[in-house]
């Protein structure tokens, strides 16, 4: 249809300019991650001498990964993170489904009150210190439950699911009720199969959220054997104490060379799962925003 329009002479140049501007921005977004990827497979000595951008690994080697993998913290961190992601996401989805279904029921006497109770928390919260004290008073310090329970529901995600459920034809639910189905049956046999797609999106959101989260662990977990991967990573990358990770390397001058390399390798180890699934699932992530946007 567009082809039928008259092509102006400036059009091609404009198209090209737009493509270039967006392309440059996309490279600006992607390149830092590529740099880390290339650097992680590089030789430590060459990497230290190298200045400027990297476009391929310098003398491809997995030496850095061997050193990083010999650091026990990376493995316990991985394990802890997987534990929290699995248990946390399961609880998130269970709670979100229950909440969304109940809040979508307009015939409930408490409909307005319950919705208000939930939505109000999006605008106001107790703040960092009172929340910290609450968790502390519940005795959850150094307990992995502190990484799961305080974030059991994301209100934003709950609203997304509620919106999807509200969009279902009410007659479907009505007829099931006339056939004698109770609310548990209606929710699990009728409603859930119809909002499967939205739930899949929420599983992704929650799982990625848990994978990347570190603040609650920083606040509530003191025992290093319970540190999730992101906290281990923070030590290595930001606090620059890395160097627990490079202990297996012998003498001091070599240790210094490996320090940088190990940073890149642990970064990739922690990010690889996200990078692998992201391109395939990108459209589902976007879909979640779209569902949310309709509401907002």
């Amino acid at each position: 249809m567009r082809a039928s329009c008259k092509r102006r002479p400036g059009d091609l140049a404009a198209n090209l300019l737009i493509a270039v501007v967006l392309g440059l921005f996309a490279i600006f977004c992607l390149y830092p991650i590529l740099y880390v990827l290339f650097a992680s497979f590089s030789d430590p000595r060459l990497l230290n001498q190298h200045t400027g951008l990297l476009f391929y690994p310098l003398d491809f080697t997995v030496e850095g990964y061997t050193v990083a993998a010999s650091y026990a913290g990376v493995w316990t961190g991985y394990l802890n993170t997987i534990l929290v992601v699995t248990a946390g996401t399961a609880l998130n989805i269970f709670m979100t489904i229950l909440g969304a279904y109940v809040l979508s029921r307009r015939d409930l006497y408490l409909h307005r009150a319950a919705n208000l109770l939930v939505v109000f928390t999006m605008f106001f919260n107790g703040g960092l210190v009172p929340t910290y004290l609450t968790v502390k008073n519940l005795g959850l310090i150094d307990n992995r439950l502190a990484l799961i329970l305080p974030v059991a529901i994301s209100t934003w995600n709950l609203i997304i699911l509620r919106t999807s459920i509200e969009a279902l034809p009410q007659s479907l639910i009505e007829s099931a009720r006339i056939d004698g189905a109770n609310d548990v049956v209606i929710l699990f046999r009728i409603v859930l199969p119809l909002v499967k797609a939205t739930i899949a999106v929420l599983v992704l959101y929650y799982a990625v959220g848990h994978w990347n989260s570190w603040v609650n662990a920083m606040l509530y977990i003191k025992d290093r054997s319970k540190y999730p991967l992101q906290l281990i990573l923070r030590e290595i990358l930001i606090e620059n104490t890395s160097n627990a990770a490079t202990q297996s390397v012998g003498n001091l001058s070599e240790l210094d060379q490996y320090k940088q390399l190990v940073k890149y390798c642990t970064t990739m180890i922690a990010t690889a799962p996200i990078l692998f699934i992201y391109p395939f699932l990108q459209k589902y992530f976007v879909k979640g925003v779209m569902i949310g946007a309709v509401k907002g």
Binding site: I33, W211, W214
Partner: peptide
């Protein structure tokens, strides 16, 4: 989708 820790690193 990448964690804040990694990005800040």
């Amino acid at each position: 989708f990448i964690s804040m820790v990694v990005l800040c690193g």
